[in-house]
Write a protein that binds this DNA or RNA. Structure first.
Lengths: 204, 204, 204, 204
DNA sequence: GATGAATGAGCGTTCATTCAT
DNA sequence: AATGAATGAACGCTCATTCAT
C-alpha cells in the first residue's frame, strides 16, 4: 500500500513494535500484527531486524539512548545535589510522559524473562549514577537504611508506578492519571516527597 | 501414570503455573510446560480449568484472597493510623517475600493486556482501603500534593519495586536483595520513609 | 442432576444423540454434547454403548426397525399394487414427518463414510421390497427405462428430498415445508405423480 | 520440498479437499489429511484459505459457479419449455456425473449444519429459475399439487438421488450405477418421466 | 529493498475413551 | 448403574522464520 523509503520502513516497524509491545507485551504481539500496523510486508521485518528479539532490543536501546542523554546532562551539571535531584524527577517524569509505552515495556521485561539482561545492562548504570548523585550531596547516605541506593530505588518506584499502574489508578481517581492536570499534581507530590526526605538527611 | 487424588492434580497445576507465570510471564509459558512441571497430562489442565486464561485468574484470585485477609486484619484493627500504616508495610513486605511470583505476575499484567480487568478488580479496593486508612489519621491528606491517594501509590511503588526490580537491584548491590539481611534493611528503610513523611503531615 | 433410572438413561442418550446427529451430523456432534443434553455423565455413554459409532448405529437400527414394521404391513397386504403403492407413499410420508431427524441422518451417512455399510444393510432390502411390489402389479417394469428399480429410486428421491432439503425449500416457498398444510400439498403432489406414471404403465 | 508456483498449491489443496470432503464429509476430514493428499505443508492451507470452513465454501462456490454457467445457458435459450426442461435434465446429469463429489458434499451440507447458509444461497436461485422455466411453458403450474415448485423439487430429487444413493443402489442393481451404461439408462428414465408428467399437464 | 509463498514447530484446546471407585 | 478424574491422540490454527524472485 504505502510505498515507504528504506528508512521509513525500519522506522515504521519500530514504531508499530513499540506501540504493540507497550499495549500487549512482547509475547502477546505477533510479527504479523507488527507488519500490518506498520504497513510493511511481514518478511521485511526480518530483513531489517535479525529476529523478533532483536526488534524488542532495538526498541529498548532506542529509548535508553535517548534517556541516557537526558540523565547525563543532569549528572554532569554543576549545582547542588538537591537541585539536581529535583531536576532528575522533572526530567524522568517528562521522559515517561512523552514515552508512555516505554515504562510498560520495561515493567514487563524487568520482571524476568529472556530480555532481562538487556534491561539490567541499561538500568543498573542509571541506578548507579543516581546513587552517586545522592551520595555526592549527602555523605550520610553511604550505607544503612537511608542509603543512596535505597533512596534511588524508592524514588524510581514512586515515579514509574504512576505510569505502570495508570490503568489501575484511573479507577482509583476516576480521572486519567496521565492527563495534564493529574500529572502536574503527581509532579508536585514527588517534589514534596523529595523535600521531606532530604531535609532531615541534610540536618544530620 | 500417577493416579493422584483430585485435589492434588489441581493444586499441582496451580503451583506449576504460578512458578512459570512468575518466571517467564503468562504468554511465554505454554500449557505443555505447565503440564510437564506439574506431572499431569496436558488435557487435565483443561479439565480443571476452563482455559489458560482462567488458570491465570485462578492463580491471581488465590493470591488476592490470601492478601485480602491480611489487609482486612489491619484495616479493622484499633490503634492509631500511624501504627497501622507501619503494620501495613510489614505485612505487605512479609506477603511479597513469601510469594515472590506474585509481584512479578501482577507487575506484568497490570501494565496492560487481556487480564488487566482482573488486576483492577482486586487492586483498586486495596488502594481505596489504604487511602481511607491514611485519611482517617491525617485529615490534611484529603487532597492536594500529599493526598492519601498519592501517598498510597508512592508507598506501594516503593514496596513492590524492591521485588519486581530485584533482578536489576542484585546487580546494583552485588547481593541478593531478597536475602534475609537485605530484606531487613529494606524494611527499616520503608519504616523510616514512612516516619519522615508522616511527621510533618501530622504537624500541620 | 436428574436421577434417571437405568432404562431412562439409555433412552435419554439415544434421544439426545438422535437430535444432535440430526441437526449437526455425526462427526460434528461430540459425546460431551450428547451427555449434556441428555443429562447423564459422559462416561455413562460408554457404559451403555460400546462407542460413539455403536451409538449412531443404535439410533439407525431403532428407526429402521420401526420403519420395517410399517413397510411389512403394506407388502403383505392384499389389494392392488396401485393401492399399495399409494399407501406406501402415505406411510413413508407419515414416518418421515414424525421422525424428522431420521431422513437427515440417513441423508448424510448414505453419501459415504464409515457408516455406509449400516445404511446399505437396511436400505437395500427396502428398495428390493418396493421393486417387487411394483413388478407384481406392472409386469412391464421388469427392465428398461421404466423398470421397477428406477421407479422406486425416483419416488424415494421425490419423497425424501422434501425433508432433506426442507431448509432450502423453506426459502423457496417462504413457508415451512414441514408445516401441516404444505406437507398435505406435498402428499397430494406425490399421489398425483404416482397416478401420472402408473396410468400409461398399466395401459401397455 | 516442492516449490510449486502459487496457483498450483492452491489448486492442489482445493482438489484434495474436494475429494476428501466428498468421500468422508467435511467434519470427518482433517486439514492434515488434506495437506498430505495435496502434498503441501499443513500451514499453507491457512495461508491460502482463511480457515477450514472457508476452504469448503471455496469448493462449493467453485462448483456452483460452473453450474450456474451451465444453467444460465438453458434458461436464456429460445425454444419450448419442454425442450429446455429435457435439456436441463441432460446438463444436470452431465454435470453431476462429471463432478461426483459435488452431489455428496451438497447432500451432507444441505441436511443442516454450519454451512447450510452457503447451500441455500446457491440452491434457492437454481430452484427459482427452474420453477420459472416450468411456469413459462405450463401456466397451469402456478399453484396446487402440480405447481412448478413441486415439480422442480421432485425432478431434482429424482436426479440427485441416483448419485447420492449410488453406494446403496450399487447393491440393488449389482452394477455400478455410475457406469456409462447404467447412467445412460437412468437418463432415459428421467426423460420418460418428464414426458409422462408434462403430457397431461399440457393437455389441460 | 521488498514480497508472496512456503515451512517446521508449536500453540491452546477438544476429542473419544478408560480407569478406579 | 453411575461418576469424577485422567489420558493419548488429534484437532484447527498461528507462530517466527526462510526462500526464491
Amino acid at each position: 500500500m504505502k510505498k515507504t523509503g528504506a528508512k521509513n520502513a525500519r522506522a515504521a516497524i519500530l514504531k508499530a513494535a513499540d506501540q504493540l509491545f507497550g499495549k500487549w507485551g512482547f509475547d502477546a504481539t505477533s510479527t504479523r500484527e507488527i507488519a500490518e500496523r506498520s504497513g510493511v510486508n511481514k518478511a521485511l521485518i526480518h530483513y531489517h531486524f535479525k529476529n523478533k528479539d532483536a526488534l524488542l532490543e532495538s526498541v529498548l536501546d532506542q529509548y535508553y539512548q535517548k534517556l541516557a542523554g537526558v540523565l547525563l546532562a543532569v549528572i554532569n551539571r554543576p549545582g547542588s545535589a538537591e537541585q539536581n535531584l529535583h531536576l532528575l524527577i522533572d526530567l524522568y517524569l517528562d521522559f515517561l510522559s512523552e514515552n508512555l509505552n516505554f515504562s510498560r515495556i520495561v515493567q514487563r521485561e524487568s520482571a524476568g524473562g529472556k530480555h532481562l539482561g538487556r534491561i539490567q545492562k541499561h538500568l543498573v548504570p542509571i541506578f548507579q549514577a543516581g546513587s552517586r548523585l545522592v551520595q555526592g550531596g549527602y555523605p550520610e547516605s553511604k550505607s544503612g537504611e537511608l542509603s543512596a541506593q535505597h533512596l534511588i530505588i524508592s524514588f524510581y518506584g514512586m515515579i514509574v508506578s504512576w505510569f505502570t499502574y495508570s490503568r489501575v489508578i484511573e479507577h482509583l481517581l476516576d480521572k486519567d492519571p496521565l492527563g495534564k492536570k493529574e500529572l502536574e499534581l503527581r509532579r508536585r507530590h514527588l517534589h514534596r516527597m523529595l523535600d521531606l526526605i532530604l531535609e532531615p538527611l541534610a540536618r544530620r
